[in-house]
Simulated assay, not measured.
Amino acid sequence: MPLETVQKKCCNNCLFTKNKIVSDAAKDEILEDCVTNNKKFLCHKGTIRGVDIVCRGYYEKYNDPAVNKLLESVGEIEFVEID
């Protein structure tokens, strides 16, 4: 089983797009909470379905690209598509 499941692409309401469903202030607060508490930001579409899937935008912006590449190469990251 992979270490982490990540949304394959940013959804249409991704926190990291102009179509996000929260204000900029709420976005900043959410991300500060994630960083302060060493948590991943989960995609709301997965959460609605009861599945923990890391937001693709968060994965790209807040994870080390070298670590991402290594984990992907050994199968520790699984990319899924939730619509």
Rank of each mutant, 00 (worst) to 15 (best):
C10H: 05
E72P: 07
Y62I: 02
D83S: 12
G57W: 06
P65H: 00
K45A: 07
K69N: 12
K20G: 00
L71V: 05
E81A: 03
F79E: 00
K69F: 13
K8G: 05
V74F: 12
L71T: 05
E81V: 04
K40D: 10
T5A: 04
E78V: 10
R49Q: 14
K39G: 02
E60C: 11
I21M: 10
T5K: 08
K8N: 10
L15C: 08
F16Q: 01
Y62A: 01
D83T: 11
E60Y: 12
V67L: 15
C55V: 07
L31A: 02
I21L: 13
V51L: 13
L3F: 15
V22K: 02
R56Y: 15
A25V: 08
L70G: 06
N13L: 13
K45F: 14
D33H: 11
V74Y: 09
I82N: 04
E72M: 04
C10A: 12
N63L: 15
L42T: 01
F79N: 00
G75N: 03
E60T: 10
F16V: 03
F41P: 00
T17P: 01
H44L: 13
V35I: 12
A66F: 14
N38E: 13
C10P: 10
A26G: 02
I53C: 04
E76S: 08
V6F: 12
L42K: 03
Y59W: 15
E29V: 09
K69H: 12
T17S: 08
Y62Q: 02
D28N: 14
A25K: 11
E60K: 13
M1Q: 03
R56E: 03
L70N: 08
K20P: 05
D52H: 10
K9T: 06
K8H: 09
L3N: 05
D83M: 11
K61S: 15
E60A: 07
S23R: 01
P65I: 02
C43Q: 03
A26W: 11
K45V: 13
T5G: 01
N12H: 10
D24T: 03
F16R: 01
G57K: 03
V80F: 08
Q7W: 07
K69I: 12
T17I: 06
P2V: 06
K8E: 10
E72T: 09
V6T: 07
C43P: 09
L15I: 10
D64H: 15
D83G: 09
L42N: 01
D28H: 10
D64G: 10
D52N: 10
E60L: 14
S23F: 05
E29G: 09
C34L: 05
D64N: 15
N63G: 08
T47K: 12
V35D: 00
D28F: 11
C11N: 09
K20R: 14
A66D: 09
A26M: 11
P65M: 00
V51Y: 13
D24S: 05
I82A: 02
Y58S: 02
